[in-house]
């Protein structure tokens, strides 16, 4: 009773926890990038029809848009996917306390969005995540493709939204507990990111570039 376990946990999360998470995240990302790039690829001797590098860069951006007919075939994955990704970045980058984190870390800040808006985006993101989870369980293809990792990663992605929302709205445990859990959940996300499919957050750049490179040099659509 004479020390606050919630505050102790929060302090751990802000201190050693954050240190560990940062170290694992950065170690992992650099490791994975080196691991991938160092595998290299053979020089292509066939004369290109178009600039492969240009096509690679174009593909990095063009794949942000839905592809022909796909949105109609998989509406939940598309709508849910866009909402979640947009929501993730809006909440991460435009919630006042988060901005403060960047200000402290990188020395640059920017104006935030009002809390009610952030909360609305959080709820939308969570709904989107639930929707894509349901779509994963119900669609035979995604169900077949899914492994333990897919579900574990879903949980790890969902938790920061949930704990953040609960902390701000004083739901569940007392605020300090929720705050500590929120920070810890983000740290969990940071730790698993380099070693799960969440790596796509970084490697999609390479994947798209390679795809654009390989096919663009043939003059083919990418």
């Amino acid at each position: 009773m004479t020390s606050d376990p919630a505050m102790d946990l929060l302090m751990w999360a802000r201190g050693p926890g954050f240190q560990i998470a940062t170290v694992v995240l950065l170690f992992g990302i650099v490791l994975r990038i080196v691991e991938i790039l160092a595998l290299g690829r053979a020089r292509d001797l066939a004369p290109p029809k178009a600039s492969p590098a240009q096509s690679g860069l174009r593909t990095v951006f063009s794949r942000f848009l839905p592809r022909h007919g796909m949105a109609m075939r998989s509406p939940v994955i598309h709508i849910g996917g866009y909402l979640f990704h947009a929501g993730f970045f809006i909440v991460l980058l435009f919630f006042g306390p988060h901005i403060q984190l960047f200000e402290e870390g990188f020395g640059i800040g920017w104006p935030g969005l009002p809390s009610p808006l952030i909360e609305a985006v959080t709820v939308i993101s969570m709904v989107a995540l639930v929707a894509v989870l349901i779509a994963r369980v119900r669609d035979p293809v995604r169900k077949l493709l899914s492994t333990f990792e897919d579900y574990a990663v879903w949980v790890v992605t969902f938790l920061p939204f949930l704990t953040g929302f609960m902390a701000v709205n004083k739901l569940g445990l007392p605020y300090t507990w929720m705050m500590a859990l929120h920070v810890l959940s983000v740290e969990l996300l940071m730790v698993v990111l380099p070693f799960t499919k969440l790596t796509h957050a970084v490697t999609f750049l390479f994947a798209r570039y390679y795809n654009g490179w390989v096919n663009g040099r043939k003059g083919a659509a990418t």
């Binding site: 160092a38 595998l39 690829r41 998989s74 994955i77 499919k197 796509h200 490697t203 390479f206 390679y210």
Partner: peptide, 16 residues
């Protein structure tokens, strides 16, 4: 090779 590694690292099992 590197593209293969990048592709598998990026797959999120979206099923599209």
């Amino acid at each position: 090779d590197a593209p293969v590694a990048a592709f598998f690292s990026s797959c999120v099992h979206c099923g599209l």
